[in-house]
Design a protein around this nucleic acid. Structure first.
Lengths: 104, 104
DNA sequence: GAAGTATATGTCATATATGACATATTAACA
DNA sequence: TGTTAATATGTCATATATGACATATACTTC
């Protein structure tokens, strides 16, 4: 795994510590994590486009500001389900949500 | 989605087309459900292509045969996360995993 | 028919995600 | 500086998803 990807993951809170743990990530696991980070970024962008605060979006999807913040930060406790539902609520299609290709 | 609507869907067998109005689903909820059903179908097809049994796939993703069956049946207790991870394990891209176009 | 193989269904204890809340940090502006 | 709005972080009780297991159904092949 290249260091750029590794740093991205670390920033998002996925890292536990050592590089060894990263090497134990299967390609599928890496793809899954990248997918979530993509959705997180897309959600942030989509919300900005609509000029909504995190609190406003939270109201839209019957969630809370803190959880929206965690969604956009790629917090590991946030599920794909929640991310996708948020994007759908902002008028995105699931395909829109995916954006660029993710390498496996 | 609140559990009341989920319950309605479960009772209705989930897959009936244009059940949206009858079940009082918002377009977002309908899109979310259609997405999951798409993933369910894609998973079934992908598994068949690879000539794997549900048990074999279950072993691959460290799950169980019964849960794989539920995935492919679109059972409401199956998360997007699990569906996507299964598809990734079968070599699909996240884009593939996200399924065909879903109208919102 | 029996026996084997694959898939479906139901249940449950446990694991994980959730909204809510408090609080901290950041950013913009007087 | 101080004040306000926006966003981030930490925690927790509850809700939901999970794998495992039992068992049922379906479909072969003998």
């Amino acid at each position: 795994m290249d260091s750029k990807k590794r740093q991205k993951l670390e920033e998002a809170g996925w890292a536990i510590g050592s590089a060894e743990e990263f090497l134990e990530l299967t390609p599928e696991e890496a793809a899954y994590i990248e997918l979530k980070l993509n959705l997180a970024r897309n959600l942030h962008a989509a919300r900005q486009e609509k000029q909504l605060t995190q609190s406003a979006l939270a109201r839209l999807i019957h969630s809370s500001q803190s959880r929206v913040a965690k969604m956009e930060k790629g917090d590991p406790t946030v599920s794909l389900d929640l991310l996708v539902r948020a994007l759908l609520a902002l008028g995105k299609t699931p395909q829109d949500a995916m954006g660029e290709s993710v390498k496996v």
